[in-house]
């Protein structure tokens, strides 16, 4: 464990909690892409199946359980409890255009052609593009609630910190996972224009609105 990975995990946890609280407190999931949240629930489900097969640390197990519970709670709130506030007309990204290439890539490029390993690889590739429906929805509506931008900021920050974690682990532990690093780079690059808008607008107290 190193400071980048710990702050990365805490940033990820903060993002997940911010979103859950936003929906729960405002009793509304306006502006939130339910499709992205389903993809994140799928990412956690396929990646954390090893909860039952291998114990790494109490921290690892506890965080995985929290992530999975929050992910499914968020999906439930969007498609169940507060379905009336779900903006399906703007959440129209074709997720099959993500799932099919990700499945093919996971089967073709992985560390080992074993079920658990292919599922892990699938979850790594899927996570790198899972935010696209959300970013697409914001580009369609042309704006996002400020709390939603904070959610996206911490979500993007977490994988950016993981990039530094991998540099640290390569240098100090000789650990290197090309699949995770490449997917993490793609994931972080997808946030770049959002980071720019967040820093130049939201942090100056303005509302995030894309040039319509």
């Amino acid at each position: 464990m190193n400071i980048f990975r710990l702050t990365g995990d805490l940033s990820h946890l903060a993002a997940i909690i911010i979103l859950l609280l936003k929906i729960w407190k405002t009793r509304s999931c306006a502006g939130i892409s339910g499709k992205s949240q389903i993809l994140f629930a799928l990412v956690f489900t396929t990646r954390y199946l090893d909860l039952f097969s291998s114990f790494i640390s109490l921290y690892n197990t506890v965080m995985k359980v929290i992530y999975i519970m929050c992910a499914y709670a968020t999906v439930y709130l969007i498609y169940g409890k507060f379905k009336a506030t779900y903006d399906g007309n703007h959440d129209t990204f074709r997720v099959e255009f993500l799932l099919i290439p990700v499945v093919l890539l996971a089967v073709l490029i992985n560390h080992a052609f074993a079920p658990m390993e292919i599922l892990w690889t699938f979850s790594i590739y899927l996570e790198s593009v899972a935010i696209l429906p959300q970013l697409f929805m914001i580009s369609k509506t042309g704006e996002a609630e400020t709390i939603t931008t904070h959610y996206l900021f911490f979500l993007g920050l977490y994988r950016t910190l993981y990039l530094f974690n991998w540099i640290w682990r390569f240098y100090f532990e000789g650990f290197f996972d090309l699949i995770a690093v490449v997917a993490g780079l793609v994931q972080t690059i997808l946030y770049c224009d959002f980071f720019y808008l967040y820093i130049t607008k939201v942090l100056k107290g303005k509302k995030l609105s894309l040039p319509a």
Binding site: R47, S54, M63, K64, H111, W120, F170, F175, A180
Partner: peptide, 10 residues
């Protein structure tokens, strides 16, 4: 350095 398939990260 090839990554092992024991994934210890979240």
């Amino acid at each position: 350095i090839i990554a092992r398939t024991q994934h210890d990260e979240l």
